[in-house]
């Protein structure tokens, strides 16, 4: 794409990002690993980190992102939420549907709030 998009943006609207199609196996493995590792990290975040973990355990600051990656990639690819640019209210609306309509009932209220914060900040209306 040339320098044109700058002009283009004078008119509201955005173009879809060309998403890479993951290679079949990698997708399977990555999803498996991310769910499992994510769960472990989520456990750390829950405040009761069992001490003797792996040495280079990621820092707690990354937890909201990890929570997002763990829970929001279980049923569909993370590209679905990542392709959105929504304000807090709309993210809350999405979250309510995921939990109440589609069955993501295991995400606790606290985790929901952290994920909503993360999404509002990183995938808000002004995000690139």
């Amino acid at each position: 794409m040339s320098e044109l998009p700058r002009f283009w943006r004078l008119w509201p609207g955005r173009r879809p990002v060309r998403a890479r199609i993951p290679d079949g196996f990698i997708a399977v493995a990555a999803a498996a690993l991310s769910v499992l590792m994510g769960n472990a990290l989520a456990a750390e975040h829950n405040g009761k980190p069992p001490k003797p973990m792996v040495e280079n355990a990621p820092m707690v600051e990354t937890a909201p992102k990890k929570l997002f990656e763990t829970h929001c990639g279980v049923c569909h690819s993370l590209e679905l939420p990542r392709s959105q640019r929504l304000d807090r209210n709309t993210w809350r609306w999405v979250m309510d549907d995921m939990v109440n309509k589609f069955g993501a009932t295991w995400i606790t209220g606290k985790q929901q709030e952290l994920i909503i914060d993360y999404l509002t900040e990183n995938h808000g209306p002004q995000s690139p």
């Binding site: 199609i21 290679d23 079949g24 997708a27 690819s77 590209e79 679905l80």
Partner: peptide, 17 residues
């Protein structure tokens, strides 16, 4: 993913679904 290969040039918004 093999099936998506039957659609060359497709902009994939998300692969699953």
């Amino acid at each position: 993913t093999a099936q998506i290969e039957g659609k060359p040039g497709m902009i994939v918004h998300n692969p699953r679904p």
